[in-house]
């Protein structure tokens, strides 16, 4: 049984009737066709499904789509503006902060909020801020490098 849901996704309004049990991540992937947000677990521990709701990083595998009614959701696909990578995306590329790439969208979305809250984080603050995101490939060092790099480049740009 569908419930009408209106969600702003990456700036565009999406209106659908959605079964209440559809998770936000499923809504984004299956209804909106935005498959950049990934699922790595069912217990909200891996962070691969991280998106922003009203600017706050959340795990979209642990939210029903109906709960996001009226909210603004930003996914990895919505970060790059006018074809230009977001500074965090750029930094992940620059610092080889990804290998298989599966955790990467969630990692980047978390880093975006992290840098919003702490524009000049220490390495320890970065590591702490990324606690909710598992990566099995990189060993994290290059990810921390990348977030540090993004902070630096944003400062340089400011």
């Amino acid at each position: 049984m569908g419930v009408p849901v209106r969600i702003h996704v990456n700036g565009a309004l999406h209106q659908h009737d959605v079964e209440p049990r559809v998770l936000l991540v499923e809504y984004l992937r299956d209804v909106c066709g935005l498959t950049g947000t990934h699922v790595g677990c069912e217990s909200s521990l891996c962070g691969a499904c991280t998106v922003l709701i009203d600017g706050q990083a959340v795990k979209s595998c642990t939210i029903f789509a109906v709960q996001a009614e009226g909210r603004a959701v930003t996914t990895i696909e919505g970060l790059a503006q006018e074809g230009r990578l977001h500074p965090v995306q750029e930094a992940f590329w620059e610092r080889h902060a990804l290998q298989c790439g599966y955790c990467t969208p969630g990692m980047i979305m978390t880093a975006v909020q992290l840098l919003k809250d702490h524009p000049q984080p220490t390495r320890a603050e970065i590591a702490h801020g990324l606690k909710g995101n598992l990566c099995r490939c990189t060993g994290y060092t290059h990810i921390i490098d990348a977030v540090e790099h993004a902070a630096g480049s944003r400062q340089g740009a400011a």
Partner: peptide
Amino acid sequence: IGDLQVRNR
């Protein structure tokens, strides 16, 4: 508690 995302929610 938990992590950044969990604390947000």
